[in-house]
Design a protein around this nucleic acid. Sequence first.
DNA 1: CGGCCGATCCACT
DNA 2: GTGGATCGGCCGA
Length: 197
Amino acid sequence: MKPKKLKESFYLQDDVVLIARELLGKHLLTNIDGVLCGGIITETEAYAGTSDRASHAYGGKRSKRTEVMFHEGGVAYVYLCYGIHSLFNIVTNVENVPHAVLIRAIHPMTGIDVMLKRTKKSKAGPGFTDGPGKLSRALGIHHKHTGMSLFGNKIWLEDRGVKIDEKDILVTPRIGIDYAGKDALLPYRFLLKGNNF
DNA sequence: CGGCCGATCCACT
DNA sequence: GTGGATCGGCCGA
């Protein structure tokens, strides 16, 4: 199957939890600093808008940081966490519905040498791009890229025909959101079983 | 304007 | 297993 860039209709779907599941196996690509890098998405988390205590947009909160989440689906929401890490999210749903999917891990495929250099690693083994902060650094994604369209030529997603079987998907609660009360228990995290990355 | 804290990672014990 | 790094956003004064 020929690679095809994910288009608007994918990002406008109403069910962000379903989108998070469907993003497994899709390719995330960047062309930053003139270098093509990318990999297969292996772990995601859904953030379900104004009613989700774990979401930055909980209660409909708008701020300079969260405003981009209210944008129509198909843009990047990248923010700085712990003063060090840029976390990459995909904004979904229609304008004013602030849904997003956090990409937590990828299996590197393209531009591995450059990604190694960016992360100061010597080889692409376990622990290379298995966290949201790490994969952003490897791909060259910075919080200055927040609001960027995913239909452009810097950051985008492709369907390359990777088929994911239901039995290979692990579903768990989300990570690092203990402050979210009962919403911390929601099964909104999806990962591919047996992936080393 | 000051203080607190985070959707994390790494070095060190 | 634990704590420090490090800084923008947010809230209260």
